[in-house]
Computed example of a mutant assay.
Amino acid sequence: MTKVLRGGVIGAGVFGGYHARQYAQAEGAGLAAVFDPDLERAREVAARHGAAAFDDLDAFLSSVDVVTVASPGVRHAEGALAALRAGRSVYVEKPLAVDLEEADRILAEASRRRLVVACGHQERVVFEAIGLFSAPERPLRLEAVRQGPQSQRSLDISVVLDLMVHDIDLALSLAAGAPLAAEGEGDVAYSGGLDAVRAEVTFDDGFTAVFDASRMAPERRRTMRVVYPSGELEIDFLARSFRNTTG
């Protein structure tokens, strides 16, 4: 008899609601529980899918098999480590953590317990579908723009960890070399942290990546230009379109 995995979501905000719905619709899994320090918020999300609501983390973890961490970014490490220590594999919304020490602790705990830890870099799926990871050429330059208007979402972390992190991940996934130097500038507008950042990173093999991220722009933009020796690729993530001149 095939076991149906009991999915649990930590965080009953907007992204927690998204993940709760995906568990409820997934084959081989179901939404068993939602945790949030605000029990009423947890109940609101859980009730949509017939799941249990908790404000006690230990009780929540005992009722699930796998966990998605969709709490505010500054709490990601706390939730991920608690789940791993309870023997549960985890999927963590980006960023994995807000500093390298916390990220290393998460990876070490998962390795020690032989559990899975994954992070929400869904743009990799787009690149895999387009075929960029199997392309015969390495890129020379990458230019990424990821902008949106002012929002009250994710104000506990900078725009780098909120938006730019996707494009940094994609650049690192495509690059053959290692980052050598980085330069950048940013603006603090309304969150108390960086709300707009432009950065340029050079790699030891000559590859250059330019990132432009903002959550204070007049409209949403999600584009990327990747230059190869034989041509270039332009991607519009919002329109779900791309132009390829590499052949």
Rank of each mutant, 00 (worst) to 15 (best):
Met1Ala: 15
Lys3Gly: 10
Lys3Phe: 08
Arg6Met: 11
Gly7Glu: 04
Gly13Ala: 01
Tyr18Gln: 14
His19Cys: 07
His19Asp: 07
His19Glu: 08
Ala20Phe: 05
Ala26Asp: 01
Glu27Met: 13
Glu27Val: 02
Ala29Glu: 01
Ala29Tyr: 10
Gly30Glu: 15
Leu31His: 01
Ala32Thr: 00
Ala33Leu: 04
Val34Ile: 11
Val34Cys: 03
Pro37Lys: 01
Glu40Met: 13
Arg41Lys: 08
Ala42Glu: 04
Glu44Ser: 09
Glu44His: 14
Ala46Ser: 14
Ala47Asn: 10
Arg48Glu: 09
Gly50Pro: 13
Ala52Arg: 06
Phe54Met: 12
Leu57Trp: 02
Ala59Tyr: 05
Ala59Ser: 11
Leu61Trp: 08
Ser63Thr: 08
Ser63Ile: 05
Val66His: 05
Thr68Gly: 03
Thr68Met: 07
Ala70Thr: 03
Ala70Lys: 01
Pro72Ala: 01
Gly73Met: 00
Gly73Leu: 01
Gly73Val: 00
Val74Trp: 09
Ala77Gly: 09
Ala77Cys: 04
Glu78Lys: 09
Glu78Asp: 11
Ala80Met: 06
Ala83Asn: 07
Leu84Arg: 00
Ala86Thr: 02
Gly87Lys: 00
Arg88Pro: 01
Arg88Thr: 04
Ser89Asp: 00
Glu93Cys: 13
Lys94Ala: 02
Pro95Lys: 08
Leu96Ile: 13
Val98Glu: 13
Val98Tyr: 00
Leu100Tyr: 08
Glu101Gln: 12
Ile106Asn: 08
Ala108Trp: 12
Arg112Ala: 05
Arg112Asn: 11
Arg114His: 15
Val116Asp: 14
Val116Trp: 07
Cys119Lys: 01
Cys119Phe: 02
His121Arg: 12
Glu123Gly: 09
Val125Asn: 10
Gly131Cys: 09
Ala135Asp: 05
Glu137Trp: 15
Glu137Phe: 07
Arg141Thr: 02
Arg141His: 15
Ala144Phe: 15
Gly148Asn: 08
Gln152Tyr: 12
Gln152Leu: 14
Gln152Cys: 12
Ser154Trp: 15
Ile157Tyr: 02
Ser158Asp: 07
Val165Glu: 03
Val165Ser: 11
His166Gln: 12
Ile168Pro: 01
Ile168His: 13
Asp169Phe: 14
Leu170Ile: 05
Leu170Tyr: 06
Ala171Ser: 06
Leu172Trp: 04
Ser173His: 10
Leu174Ala: 09
Gly177Asp: 10
Ala178Lys: 07
Ala178Pro: 14
Pro179Cys: 01
Leu180Tyr: 13
Ala181Cys: 04
Ala182Leu: 13
Gly184Gln: 09
Glu185Gly: 11
Asp187Leu: 06
Ala189Cys: 14
Ser191Trp: 03
Ser191Phe: 06
Gly192Tyr: 12
Asp195Phe: 07
Ala196Thr: 15
Ala199Lys: 04
Ala199Trp: 05
Glu200His: 07
Glu200Gly: 13
Val201Glu: 01
Phe207Ser: 03
Thr208Ala: 04
Thr208His: 12
Ala209Met: 03
Glu219Asp: 13
Glu219Trp: 12
Arg220Cys: 14
Arg221Val: 07
Met224His: 03
Tyr228Asp: 11
Pro229Leu: 00
Pro229Arg: 00
Gly231Val: 03
Glu232Ala: 15
Glu234Leu: 15
Ile235Asn: 03
Phe237Gln: 06
Ala239Pro: 04
Arg243Cys: 15
